[in-house]
Design a protein around this nucleic acid. Structure first.
Lengths: 341, 341
DNA sequence: TTGTAGGCGTTATCAC
DNA sequence: GTGATAACGCCTACAA
């Protein structure tokens, strides 16, 4: 493989017949106290372009002390079908590419994993900052704070901030619940059930749901809340729930995940219940699978892609010395046939 | 934010009272013609560890001329629900992390996009190689070959190699078709339909399917092949197909995507057809959604995660001067209720 | 308006 | 056994 020579600043300098420093100043546009004849500047630029000059990133990084790399840690939680991580990474990548930065991507599964793989000192030496997204493991908080103490900016993209000193690109889980209830009510529901996951943000969603129900003057009692345990056990839980449902009176279901919603929907359809005529069904996450269910599933989107991009911007802000800021996007309803027929 | 001082080799050297070069040799384990007293070596290592020394990646890269970064270009094709890119990236990341390398990730959607965003000269200066995966756009082949001419190793993870000078981590599409037919036959099918996508590897899958049918001595005529156009139009196509099906005689369906399979399955279930008792249904890609369909969907996996890791290894081989090698994994059947009841 | 010198952190070579 | 030195490519004071 014939390794074509990489052109350096001094190659251009000697071709044009000027000094390296002049070429450097012209090419990076920061002339300091110097000036150049415009014609010469043009000449330098055109030769650089002609020879395909590309600055050596390592040398730049060595000089500037910046790595042009951001560490991105994502916990791939139990719902691969939601493609939350894919959307998040999409957003991060598109934002980073605007400024020609690279990504050090690492997946983790729990606190232990995080400690072992994501936060070794190397991160400090190889990156300019870290963004953490995915499932909000509160246990990693002390580790993140330690990293910040070390001078490395950190931002999170959890639904809610996990530390006052870490900027977070979030989405209001209370609003998620509120939106869910509002949408169901707008679609005609009067007695919805809430499939509750006793994890992370579940209680916020539930309280938002309850708030909207109250605002609408509708009854929402304990019997309308069905606990499905953790996400991991949802499949089993939903199977157990299905027969119970026949004894209950309800005209809508809001589930805390698309998968739970789909499993329920499938069970109801199998039992001859019509969706959305008899029961409206609403999920959370706007998973790709929503388009392919027996009745396409309405869902609430947490705008993960946008939050990925925003996390990077928040990171940059504190990198420039700003105070940690939190952003909170409002979730949006993505209506499909399971609620609007 | 109190920026804790980053410790360098010379900090350790002065603390221990030796020279930088000795510390460097000891810490990176390459002593050249030198030797050290074991006790001193221990001392150096322990101080380095104590102070949390981490080598500066930029300086190393500058010296060695290597960037410790691999460019990863992925075309996010039309099937986000399959999570193919997620699996692929997972594999790539896990392999890269073994050797402490970073990733420059870029998504592209078509040839034009690729030209504009993925192969600018910068890639050459910032990475040690590039891996391209996702949907196999043949149009990018000349661009990749040009990159190779420039001395940058490239590997692909397309189903089939697109160039003799580019190593590929593939999966036999002919085998995908063959496996699909074999699985259906093993499940009792005698007259399956094949939902054919006239794109990329469709013809290979079809010929593999046909081969197995022939081996089994079963008839497989043109009326058993239903063209659903491109992936983009599959939703519409399948909707049109559904009514036609009632007039056809068949006991199985192999579709070239999980989504097409699911759409068909939903249509059949709605028409009162029982799955798998009346018709066995099989998809391709082993998408996350397979677990959540009305009847869980059997599917053929192209082992994308494994192929991501292998692509990196192939890249490393040619980076070390090896000849381009192709690997071809065999697909595997992931059986679920839609075929095995 | 242009050039020179020094430094960023590391490593390999060679001298002591 | 250990240390001095140059080099990797770029950038910025400062000198001319």
């Amino acid at each position: 493989m014939k390794q074509k020579k990489i052109v350096r600043i001094c190659d251009i300098a000697s071709e044009v017949g000027v000094s390296c420093s002049l070429v450097s100043k012209v090419l990076c546009g920061r002339m300091g106290n110097s000036t150049v004849r415009p014609a010469l500047a043009e000449r330098i630029k055109s030769v650089a372009k002609l020879r395909g000059y590309v600055p050596n990133a390592s040398a730049k990084a060595l000089f500037s002390g910046r790595q042009n790399t951001v560490a991105v840690f994502v916990s791939r939680h139990g719902h691969p079908e939601s493609d939350l991580t894919g959307k998040f990474i999409d957003g991060v990548v598109s934002e980073l590419s605007k400024t020609n930065r690279r990504m050090l991507l690492q997946f983790f599964h729990d606190e232990e994993d995080f400690r072992a793989n994501c936060m070794p000192a190397a991160v400090r030496a190889v990156t300019d900052g870290a963004v953490v997204g995915g499932f909000p493991y509160f246990d990693i908080r002390p580790m993140l704070e330690a990293v910040i103490e070390n001078g490395l900016p950190v931002a999170t993209a959890f639904s809610n901030p996990i530390s006052t000193c870490i900027p977070n690109s979030g989405v209001s889980q209370e609003q998620v619940g509120y939106c869910a209830a509002r949408h169901l009510i707008e679609c005609g529901c009067r007695r919805p059930l809430f499939f509750h996951v006793n994890e992370a943000d579940g209680h916020l969603r539930l309280s938002g749901f309850r708030r909207m129900m109250a605002e609408a003057g509708l009854h929402f009692g304990g019997s309308q809340i069905y606990e499905i345990g953790s996400f991991d056990s949802e499949e089993a839980s939903v199977r157990m729930a299905a027969p119970l449902l026949s004894k209950m009176k309800y005209d809508g279901i809001a589930a805390e995940s698309d998968s739970a919603a789909v499993l329920m929907m499938n069970a109801m359809l199998a039992a001859g219940i019509r969706i959305p005529e008899n029961v409206r069904v609403l999920g959370i996450d706007d998973s790709p699978l929503c388009r392919f269910t027996m009745v396409p599933l309405s869902s609430i989107s947490g705008r993960d892609q946008e939050r990925g991009a925003r996390a990077i911007r928040l990171l940059d802000k504190i990198g420039e010395g700003g105070e940690p800021e939190n952003e909170e996007l409002d979730p949006v309803v993505v209506p499909r046939a399971s609620t609007i027929g």
